[in-house]
Amino acid sequence: MGDPINGKKLFIKMCASCHTTEKSDKHKIGPNLHGIIGKISGTAPGFNFTETMKEKAVVWDEKSLNDYLEFPKKFVPGTKKAFHGIKKAEDRRDLIAFLATLK
Rank of each mutant, 00 (worst) to 15 (best):
M53Y: 07
M53V: 11
I40T: 12
E70G: 03
T21F: 15
D25Q: 14
E55A: 09
K87N: 10
N48S: 14
Y68C: 02
H84Y: 10
I36N: 00
I40P: 02
K54H: 02
K74V: 03
G42T: 08
T79V: 06
A57M: 12
D3A: 12
K73Y: 04
L33S: 00
A82P: 05
D3I: 13
I12R: 14
K80Q: 12
F98H: 02
K88C: 06
Y68V: 03
E22K: 15
R93A: 10
V59Q: 11
T43F: 07
H27F: 04
G2T: 03
P31M: 13
N32P: 06
V58I: 02
A16W: 08
N48Y: 01
A97E: 05
E62D: 09
A89K: 12
K63R: 06
S24W: 13
N66H: 06
E90Y: 05
G35D: 05
L33M: 15
K54L: 14
T20R: 15
D61L: 11
T101K: 03
V76F: 03
H27L: 07
F75T: 05
A100T: 02
F11E: 00
K81Y: 02
G35P: 00
D25H: 13
K26S: 15
E70K: 08
I5T: 07
F75L: 08
K23S: 14
A100S: 09
G2D: 05
T79K: 04
G30E: 13
K9F: 15
E51T: 06
E70C: 08
K54T: 06
K9P: 00
N6F: 05
M53E: 09
H84A: 11
F71T: 04
A44N: 07
M14N: 15
K88T: 03
P4Y: 11
L69H: 03
L10N: 01
T43C: 05
M14S: 14
I36A: 01
I29V: 15
A44F: 07
T101D: 00
N66V: 06
T50E: 07
A82C: 09
S17G: 12
I96S: 00
L10E: 01
A16P: 04
F47S: 04
D61H: 04
I86N: 03
S41W: 04
P77Y: 03
N32Y: 04
M53C: 13
F71Y: 10
H84D: 08
T21R: 09
E62P: 00
D94L: 03
G30A: 13
F98L: 01
P72T: 05
N32G: 09
T79C: 05
K9G: 02
P31T: 07
L10F: 10
P45Y: 13
H27W: 11
H34F: 13
K9M: 14
S64A: 12
E70Y: 05
I96L: 07
K80A: 09
R92F: 07
T21Q: 12
T101A: 07
G30H: 07
V59A: 05
A100F: 05
F83C: 00
I12A: 15
L65S: 02
N48A: 11
I36C: 08
K26H: 13
F75N: 02
L69T: 01
R93P: 00
F83H: 14
A100Y: 01
V76Y: 05
I36P: 00
